[in-house]
Design a protein around this nucleic acid. Structure first.
Length: 415
RNA sequence: GGACAGAUGGGUGAGCUGGCUUAAACCACAUCCCUGCUAAGGAUGCGUAGGAGUGAUCCUACCGAGAGUUCGAAUCUCUCUCUGUCCGCCA
C-alpha cells in the first residue's frame, strides 16, 4: 500500500513518479484530501471520547459522596450521541480511503525506464549461445504431435481449455525439474517451504492481488478462500502481522507450488501449447529483508534464476520492465526470457520483483530495529516456471526426428 | 460434520458477581547497582496503532473478530472465526 503520510508530505513528487504507472493525479489528490479529512475528524472524535471517559469516572465518587447523578448522566447521554455521529463519519471516510488506497499501485523506482508496454522494456543482457539447427526447429506441440508427452486434448476433457496432462517423459521431466530447481536454490541459500495452495482474502490483500484483481483468481464456492495464483502469496504472508528480529533478516525462501490463474485478460493469447495454462507448476523465491538489504538480495535472486537457466543450457536474456509494464505491487522488475527456437522468440520464464515496503505495509511485515518497528522489504521471483522450462528444453534440445535430449544436470533426477 | 471447553501483552497466567486495573503476578529480555565465582540478590525499563507537543509528557483505540446493552465493558448479550478434547468420516 502507498504510504499516506509520505503522499501528504511529498505529493508532487509521488504523483509524478506514479505517472509512470499511469495513475491519475486527481485520484491521488482525492486520496490525500481524504487522509487529511480523516485526521481532523478523528481528532474531533477522540476529544469527545476523552470527555466521555473522564466524566464517566466521576460516577463512583458521586455515589460515594451522595451527589445527584441525574444531570451528569443526561450530559453524558448527549455526548454519547455526538460520539456515535462522529464515529460514523470517521468510519465512512476510513472505508472510502482504504478502498482507494488499496487500489493504488506501488511507486516505481527512479531508475525504472519510462514506457507504455512490453515494447518499451529494456534488454539488459543476453546469456548463452542460441542453438543452431540444420533443419527448421519445431514448436513444442509439433515435436509431440501424438501428445505422448503433453496431452492437451485430455486436459481439456478433464477440466476445460488451458488445462493439460503430462505423460511419461513429460511427467518425469516436470518432477525432475522441480527437484533440481529446489536443490539448486537450496545451494544458493534459500530454505525450502511447503505451503497451502488455498489462501484467504487477507493473504491476497497482503500481497496485492486483492481487491483489484479478483477476476484473475479461482475462488472456492461459498467460502472466502481462493486458489493461489503463485506461491508468492502464501510464502510472503507467512510473516503477515509479525514483527521479526533484525538478526533473522534477510529471510530467503523457496517453494514449489501449483499455481492457478483464470487468465481473464488474455483471451486469444497463447491459446496453443503450454505457455499459458490455468494450472501450472512454479518454483518460487521469496525474500524478506531490511530495506538496505533489498537491492543486494534482488541481484542475488536474478543471478540465481539466470544461473539456473544457464546450468540447464538454456539461452535467455534479462529484460528490465518499463513503468507501464510493471506489475501492481512491484517497484522494480527484471524478467528472464528464455529462447524458444520453435517460436524464434524469447519468452518470459521468470519475473523477479522488488516490492520495497509495498506488500510489507499491506501485510504488516515488520522487524524490530532497536526500539522501533520498521517495515521490511519483500521480494519475489520465479525460479522458474516449470512448464515453460519443460517446453524450452524440448525446443532447444530437439533433433530432426522430433526427439530431444535431456540436459546433463537433470539426468540423475530422471533415473 | 456432532458435543463440550477455551481464546488476555514475547511466554506462563490472574481478573470474568461491570467503576480502587493505570490489565496484577511470574518468567524472558535490556540497562544499572551490589557482590565476587559450579552462584545469588536488588533497582529501573519493557505490547501495538494513531494523534498533539521542541521536549518531559499527554490523548484515543486495541484483552480472538464484529455487533449490542450501559454514563462506564477484558468482565454482560448475540453472531462469527480459530484452538483443544471426545465422537464420526477420511489419505
Amino acid at each position: 500500500m502507498i504510504d499516506l503520510k509520505l503522499l501528504e508530505k511529498d505529493f508532487d513528487n509521488i504523483a509524478n513518479k506514479l505517472k509512470k504507472k499511469k495513475v491519475d493525479e486527481n485520484l491521488l489528490s482525492n486520496l490525500k484530501d481524504k487522509f487529511s479529512l480523516l485526521k481532523s475528524k478523528k481528532s474531533i472524535l477522540e476529544e469527545l471520547q476523552a470527555e466521555q471517559n473522564k466524566k464517566s469516572k466521576l460516577f463512583p465518587t458521586y455515589k460515594k459522596e451522595g451527589k445527584d447523578i441525574a444531570l451528569l448522566k443526561k450530559e453524558l447521554e448527549e455526548n454519547k450521541k455526538k460520539i456515535q455521529d462522529a464515529n460514523e463519519i470517521v468510519r465512512e471516510i476510513e472505508e472510502d480511503l482504504k478502498q482507494i488506497a488499496l487500489n493504488i499501485p506501488n511507486i516505481p523506482d527512479d531508475e525504472v525506464p519510462k514506457g507504455e508496454d512490453e515494447e518499451d522494456n529494456i534488454e539488459i543482457k543476453k546469456v548463452g549461445v542460441l542453438p543452431q539447427f540444420d533443419f527448421t526447429p519445431k514448436e513444442h506441440w509439433d515435436l509431440d504431435s501424438e501428445q505422448n508427452i503433453i496431452d492437451f486434448k485430455r486436459g481439456v476433457k478433464l477440466a476445460k481449455s488451458r488445462f493439460s496432462v503430462l505423460k511419461g517423459v513429460g511427467a518425469r521431466l516436470e518432477r525432475a525439474l522441480i527437484n533440481y530447481m529446489l536443490d539448486f536454490n537450496k545451494q544458493r541459500g534459500f530454505e525450502e517451504v511447503v505451503v497451502p495452495y488455498i489462501v484467504n482474502k487477507d493473504s491476497l490483500q497482503g500481497t496485492g492481488q486483492l481487491p483489484k484483481f479478483a477476476d484473475d483468481l479461482f475462488k472456492i464456492e461459498n467460502e472466502e478462500l481462493y486458489l493461489i495464483p503463485t506461491a508468492e502469496v502464501p510464502v510472503t504472508n507467512l510473516f503477515r502481522d509479525e514483527i521479526l528480529n533484525e538478526e533473522e533478516l534477510p529471510i530467503q525462501l523457496t517453494a514449489y507450488s501449483a499455481c492457478f490463474r483464470k487468465e481473464a485478460g488474455s483471451a486469444g493469447r497463447d491459446t496453443r501449447g503450454m505457455i499459458r495454462q490455468h494450472q501450472f507448476d512454479k518454483v518460487e523465491l521469496v525474500c524478506i529483508t531490511k530495506p538496505e538489504q533489498s537491492d543486494e538480495v534482488f541481484n542475488k535472486m536474478v543471478s540465481c534464476a539466470s544461473d539456473l537457466l544457464t546450468s540447464l543450457g538454456l539461452p535467455h536474456r534479462l529484460v528490465e520492465l518499463c513503468g507501464g509494464d510493471l506489475g501492481f505491487s512491484a517497484a522494480k522488475t527484471i524478467d528472464l526470457e528464455v529462447w524458444l527456437p520453435g517460436q524464434n522468440k524469447y519468452r518470459e520464464i521468470s519475473s523477479i520483483s522488488n516490492t520495497r515496503d509495498f506488500q510489507a505495509r499491506r501485510a504488516m511485515i515488520r522487524y524490530k530495529n532497536g526500539k522501533k518497528n520498521l517495515l521490511t522489504n519483500t521480494l519475489n521471483g520465479s525460479s522458474l516456471a516449470v512448464g515453460r522450462t519443460l517446453i524450452a528444453i524440448m525446443e532447444n534440445y530437439q533433433k530432426e526426428d522430433g526427439s530431444f535430449d535431456i540436459p546433463e544436470v537433470l539426468q540423475k533426477y530422471m533415473a
